[in-house]
Nucleic acid binder design. Structure first.
Length: 653
RNA sequence: GCUGGCGUAGCUCAGGGGUAGAGCAGCGGUUUUGUAAACCGCCGGUCGUAGGUUCAAAUCCUAUCGCCAGCUCCA
């Protein structure tokens, strides 16, 4: 750049570290990356310019914020996977000429492409060949090139190709905004962006095929969706596949059966899980834990029936609005009743039972309330998606002035609860968008509530994201997204504000001004549903529960029959202290008894033989850890109670 | 609900037109055991259910129920 750069030709770019640098107008993202380091230029996949991801090769004509996206960023992965989807389409077109392409986006973990194969059926057995072709194409080191194209040319291209799906997409686009991307011999309608060259894609795995309706509408034609994932290094793919296997091993449906936690029985009904004794211990322990925390925070527990008069849900508006996911009402005497799909209306009626003074608020009503919702049969899945489940529900009735403190209280409870399981919590503030029809209540309440939610989040110093348009009908909410031991994300609890139900149920309190006011309602459920949370907990711990939660806590294993009696004496003492303990008194070899206790994932095994009987000691073996050592029985009792009371995690200490 | 795949012993799975098999579990013995599988024997299934084709069906066809992977939906 020998010539002078005039002010109008310069642009200022702000980097994520807030540093600002000046570049000539028209500099490409690649050049910006190269100006920082050759390594970054090599690793760069795309840039994010003013929140928009774009190609490295596109000239930058305006200043603003810039981020260089490598594999280590979300935007970088998205670019990489989107480009991989194009490789998939290219490979499929090469192997199955005449196919018609739908869409092929990047998703959270990889990418897919929806393809109309005509009369050909594609199964998982066909995937390795496509995979191989993709790699072959990637190794041709083809550049991704972008071309702006007029609508008429684009239409002509796809008319010629006889692709109805692309034509449908094109018809919705405006002239002047249409671009094609090309790599090798493959051209696709695409707004981009893409990685510079296919060579970056080093490892590919096509994972699955599934039917998917064109544009997600069930009256449209079903296309074949091929799912895949790709990586810049083979090692990353190996790790990913290993993680998949690990997830499979942890599958709660498998472990739930092996550990006798729950069953689903067709004669009882699909989607209606039955909690077996082991699962019931687990669930009751979780409930007791949460109940204690809630009592400490001023909640009062209530119990409400499983069916209620239809009028209750007509008042709340849940019927007939959600009729599709509710069981049909049943006739009782002269009235109609319904299986309860929600606990809230019951709680509102409890609130409405008596006059409330502002001095009484907040009132916090909690219930482990079982609800029934009709889910489509294809949705049902183990404990995680069911038709009857128990919410760890509570409704807080408070004044506007109390709202912030109550929200804090809810966030604090949620963080504390998940902290005990060593599950990090990400927070998402779900606000309304401009579509007024989607929401109830008065705009000023919304504005105030959204502002206050954000203030609370800031005051607590939380990291959060804001999702516009994700609010519920009756108010903004805070969603908690937790991460499990193998890094998967789950949306569990929520805190939702509600301005609609107080109106519908005519809920009031008497203010200091001697006038009636509407309370605000907070709906909140940290776990969401006991069933779903249990399924996640099983997978999080891979069935290796911490001692305090484990359905079976201690297995006493006598070395031979002679020590059974002695073992039972220990058992009695543990049992008296509320420990879940059993003696394996079978005439089996000790190796077998240990093996079975290990397989049953019992946290503590006490081996009792001659030495222990003589000295009043126990030989402690911990699940997955092996022999710990020999302790005086009293000493062991202290260790045991500490581990329970501290809710020690299985992999710590 | 839709599309595809799968239902064989309590569990994991083999058998794919000629009338059902293994391992584990269970039961009965023997063994009395020191930190992840002792040995011997026995029991166990109208092959999810209901029709149909066939001389003959676990096997082929149809329907139905259930499970799995997706799609769609989720207060």
């Amino acid at each position: 750049m020998a010539q002078e750069i005039t002010a109008s030709q310069k642009i200022e770019l702000t980097f994520p570290d807030k540093s600002i640098r000046t570049f000539p107008e028209g500099t490409t993202g690649y050049e910006v990356a190269a100006s920082i380091s050759p390594r970054l230029a090599k690793d760069a996949l795309s840039i994010t310019l003013n929140q928009t991801v774009q190609d490295l090769s596109r000239p930058i004509n305006h200043g603003g914020s810039i981020k260089i996206n490598t594999w280590d960023t979300e935007d970088g992965k998205t670019t990489f996977w989107h480009s991989s989807a194009h490789l998939l389409a290219e490979a499929v077109e090469a192997l199955y000429p005449g196919v018609k392409l739908g869409i092929g986006p990047a998703i959270e973990q990889g990418f897919y492409y929806d393809i109309d194969f005509g009369d050909t059926t594609i199964s998982v057995e066909d995937l390795p060949a496509i995979e191989k072709k993709m790699l072959e194409l990637a190794r041709t080191k083809a550049d991704f090139t972008r071309k702006e194209i007029s609508k008429s040319d684009a239409l002509a291209f796809y008319t010629d190709k006889n692709d109805p799906y692309k034509l449908e997409l094109l018809n919705e686009l405006e002239d002047g905004t249409i671009s094609f991307y090309r790599q090798g011999n493959f051209t696709d309608l695409c707004r981009g962006p893409h990685i510079p060259n296919t060579e970056k894609v080093k490892a590919i795995k096509l994972l699955n095929v599934a039917g998917a309706y064109w544009r997600g509408k069930s009256d449209n034609k079903q296309l074949t969706r091929i799912y895949g994932i790709s990586f810049p290094k083979q090692k990353m793919l190996d790790e990913f596949l290993h993680m998949l296997e690990e997830a499979k091993k942890r599958d709660h449906k498998k472990l739930g059966k092996e550990l006798s936690i729950y069953m689903i029985d067709p004669m009882i009904g699909s989607g209606l899980p039955v909690w077996l004794p082991n699962g019931t211990v687990l669930r009751r322990t979780l409930e007791a834990f949460l109940r204690d925390e809630q009592v400490n925070r001023g909640y009062q527990e209530v119990i409400t029936p499983h069916i209620a008069n239809l009028r209750l849900y007509e008042t709340s508006g849940h019927y007939p609005y959600y009729a599709d996911s509710q069981y049909d009402p049943m006739q009782v005497d002269d009235e109609r009743y319904m299986l309860k799909p929600m606990n809230c209306p019951h709680h509102h009626r409890i609130y409405a039972r008596e006059m409330h003074s502002y001095r009484d608020l907040p009132i916090r009503l909690s219930e482990f309330g079982t609800v029934y919702r009709y889910e489509q049969s294809g949705e049902l899945n183990g404990l995680s998606r069911v038709r009857g489940f128990t919410q760890d529900d509570a409704h807080i009735y408070c004044t506007h002035d109390q709202l912030k403190d109550e929200i804090k209280n809810c966030i604090d409870l949620t963080q504390h609860v998940f902290g005990v399981f060593d599950m990090p919590v990400d927070i998402r503030l779900s606000f309304r968008d401009d579509n007024d029809e989607k929401y109830g209540g008065e705009a000023e309440h919304w504005d105030r509530a959204q502002r206050e939610i954000r203030e609370v989040a800031d005051e607590l110093g939380l990291d959060y994201t804001i999702a516009e348009g994700e609010a519920s009908f009756y108010g903004p909410k805070i969603d908690f997204i937790i991460r499990d031991a193998i890094g998967r994300k789950w949306q569990l609890g929520t805190v939702q504000l509600d301005y609609v139900m107080p109106e519908r149920f005519d809920l009031t309190y008497m203010g200091a001004d001697n006038k009636k006011h509407r309370p605000v309602i907070i709906h909140r459920a940290p776990f969401g549903s006991m069933e779903r949370f249990t399924s996640i907990l099983i997978e999080h711990f891979a069935g290796n529960f911490p001692l305090w939660l484990s359905p079976k806590q201690v297995a006493i294993i006598p070395v031979s029959d002679q020590f059974n009696e002695f073992a039972y004496r220990y058992k009695e003492q543990l049992h008296e202290r509320g420990i879940r303990v059993q003696v394996d008194d079978r005439s089996e070899q000790i190796g077998l008894k240990i093996r079975e206790a290990e397989k049953a994932k019992i946290p503590h095994m006490l081996i009792i033989g001659e030495r222990e009987a003589e000295n009043q000691t126990v030989s402690l073996r911990k699940h997955r850890k092996g022999t710990i050592g020999t302790f005086a029985f009293d000493e062991y009792l202290v260790k045991l109670t500490n581990e329970i009371n501290r809710k020690t995690l299985p992999d710590s200490n």
